[in-house]
Amino acid sequence: MVKRKAIVHISECVACGCCIKVCPRNAISIPKGIYAEINRELCVGCGKCTKECPASIISLEVTES
């Protein structure tokens, strides 16, 4: 089965946290105030963060398993 997961392009992340607020799975955190990290175990690939991110730097990518 094809699964999608969110991927943050960290070099362009402004660490605003807009993505955190919309994620229904609480899969996103910004531990050091530099960039957002996605917990791949929790992410269900819904794409809400992708739409919300003001810098449009989160993409959904197909993963194995």
Partner: peptide, 9 residues
């Protein structure tokens, strides 16, 4: 704290 909790929350 070394984080952006202000922005994030």
């Amino acid at each position: 704290k070394g984080n952006k909790a202000y922005c994030n929350k």
